[in-house]
Every structure is written in C-alpha cells, then in structure tokens.
Design a protein around this nucleic acid. Structure first.
Lengths: 181, 181
DNA sequence: CGTAATATGTTGCTTATACGACATATTGAT
DNA sequence: ATCAATATGTCGTATAAGCAACATATTACG
C-alpha cells in the first residue's frame, strides 16, 4: 500500500508526456525534440508540461531513467550475487546500444549519470538489506564505487567486439566479488 | 476543421469511460455493470462520471451508439443504392449478434432505438444530399420509414437460419428501391 | 547580417477532475 | 422480514489542466 497516493490526473498526464517522448525519440534525435513536439504528441497544454517538468532536459532524464528502470527489472528478491551483476550489466549495455543512434554528441554525460544513479540505488538497497547494521555512509560509498565500476566495465565492453555483454561481465565478476561478499 | 473545439480533458475522460464500459461488457452482462465498476476500471472519480453521464443507462446508450457508428463506417461518399443497404444491414446484424450474449432481457428496446436512430441519421443525410430541394419534413419521414424497414428486416433475418445477412438483404432490396430512387 | 518564423517560459483566469462526506437506495445474507 | 454491506447520487472544496496573451529567446532564411 502506497504511503502517499498520487493524484490520478497527475499520473495520467505524466504518462502521456513520457509516452510522447518515447514515441518521438523513435522518430527523431533527442536534440531535435521540442517541448512543442511533446505537447502536440501528448495532446496537452504547454503550461501543463511546465507544471510537471522543468524543461525538455528534465523530461529527457526522467524518461530515460524510467526506460532503464524497466530494463533493470528491479525486484525485492535481488541479492548481491553473480545473477545481479549479469542482469544489471545486460540491462545497461542494452540501454546504451538502444540509445546509440538517437543521441550522438552531448548526451553521453546525461546517460552515464542516469546509469550510475540507478545502479547506486539498486546496490545500496541490496547492501542495506544484507547488512542492515552497517554504517549507512559506508554502504553509500560501497554502492557508489560499485556503480562506477560496473559503468566503467560497460564502457570498456563497448570498446571491444569479441565478447557478448554476458561473457564480458562473467569474466570480471571475480574481481567484483572479492572484497565485498 | 471542427467548428467547436472540445476540451482535451473532456475527450480523454469520456474515452476512458467508454473504453472501461466496453472492456467490462466483455466480462459481464450489462445489467451487472455498475457505476462503481466503471469508475474503478477507468480510474476516475464517481463525481467525474456524473459530470459526463446522467447514469449508467446514459453511458450504455452512448457507448453502444458509438460501437454501432464504428461498425457502420459512415463516410461522405455514401449514396442511396444497393451498396449502402448491404453495408448498413451487415453492420446492424453484426451489432445485434455481438450483443446477443451480453444483454438478455431488458435491452432489446434500447438496442432497437439505437439502431433506428443511427440509421435515420444516415438515411436523412444521404437523402438530403441527393434531394437538397426536397421538403425537410418529407425527408425526415422517408428516412424514418426506411430505418424502421431495415430494422424490421433484421428482426426477420434473425428468425430464419438459411440465409446470410448479405443474401437476405439482397433478396429484399428490390422492395426497398421501388418507390424511392 | 537582418528579419521573419518558431519555440520557450510564464501568468491570470476558467474549466475539468479529484476527494471526502453525507443521505438515500439497493442488494445480499441470515 | 431485518440488518449489514454495497452502490448511488450529490455537494463543497481543492487541485490539475486548458486557454489566450505576452515577452523573450532561438532558429531559419534570404
């Protein structure tokens, strides 16, 4: 049960805006999508857009975060183990490949930040559950380092062509597991 | 271009309500569908439902009219000829068959009225276009009689089992065409 | 480079929708 | 037949969304 119920109109309108962005992003590059495009596709007023989002960049981040979140398929049964790393790595590499022809220059930093932030939340949640008595700050640092590490691995993976993402992450999991679990 | 623009919120909300009704009517009989069911399925407030519809019966009529309208596939190129009668007849018999297992007793009159009203509008529009100088009242009477006739034929068709709806209407078209075109 | 067209961002006001409360009606169970 | 549960219908209030207008910024074109 949600502790705080969101107004259904807000849910619907945000859904309309997010879906409009996703639809438009399959038709044109991110930098060519305007707030006007969004409002036409979603059939909402421009003032309504600004009621929900700061600007087009705010929407891009939130929309991409949601897309990644869906790919990550987070669930409460996640444990800090090999399966988690494999799933997470496949999700972020899939995410990056899906974006590679929609946003060239200028979005790498945004995407990188979105990926790291999502990973950090996941790792922190899992670590918190497995080590409830540990210092919160230490868990934050650990999850932050892990997210950077996984992200760095994905960048390295992209630079090579001989291994699938699953093969690649499996080859580096021993380096991840040592010193954590 | 519409001469009067409808508020997008009104359009969206009515769409939600109509779609909720259609969805529910594939799961339960009409008489078992409540306003509460509709508001849950559509995710709208009960007061909002009453803002748009008088009661559940008002919704049923409007929703069914829309379903029939879609089946009729009205377009501006319609002419009062054999094709029109065949299309119209197939649409209303299809409509009646689709409903036959969702609303038993108590809805025949509502459905009959919906069918006749839609047919009357279609026939009047076509007659008006083909005989623009004719007396408006005479055109109304002619379209009314035609709609009753076609509806009556559909009732007769249901009572027999040897002919398809298309065969049936073709066998009675000569009786319809004489005295009109 | 200058100008026109287009997009952005904001504002005040209006309309549509949500909520909770309430009285009444209907339905289901005993 | 009675009572409890559920549904209906309405109301006052609050919030979200739409509209038109406006000033400013950006983009496209000649």
């Amino acid at each position: 049960m949600t502790k705080h119920k969101i107004d259904p109109r807000v849910q619907r309108t945000r859904r309309l805006i997010m879906d409009a962005f996703i639809e438009l992003s399959s038709q044109k590059e991110f930098r060519d999508i305007t707030v006007k495009d969004i409002t036409i596709e979603a059939m909402i007023n421009r003032a309504t857009f600004y009621y929900h989002f700061h600007d087009i960049y705010d929407l891009q981040e939130k929309a991409l975060s949601e897309v990644l979140l869906i790919k990550l398929e987070c669930n409460e049964s996640y444990k800090l183990n090999e399966d988690l790393f494999i799933n997470v790595f496949k999700a972020i590499t899939n995410f990056q490949c899906a974006l590679s022809n929609r946003c060239h220059r200028g979005y790498e930093d945004t995407i990188a930040r979105i990926i790291r932030e999502q990973l950090e939340v996941i790792f922190y949640t899992v670590l918190k559950k497995e080590h409830p008595t540990h210092d919160q700050e230490a868990l934050k640092i650990a999850s932050g380092m892990l997210s950077w590490a996984i992200y760095g691995a994905s960048i390295k993976w992209k630079q090579q062509t001989t291994q699938t993402s699953e093969q690649y992450i499996q080859s580096i999991i021993p380096y991840l597991m040592r010193g954590i679990a």
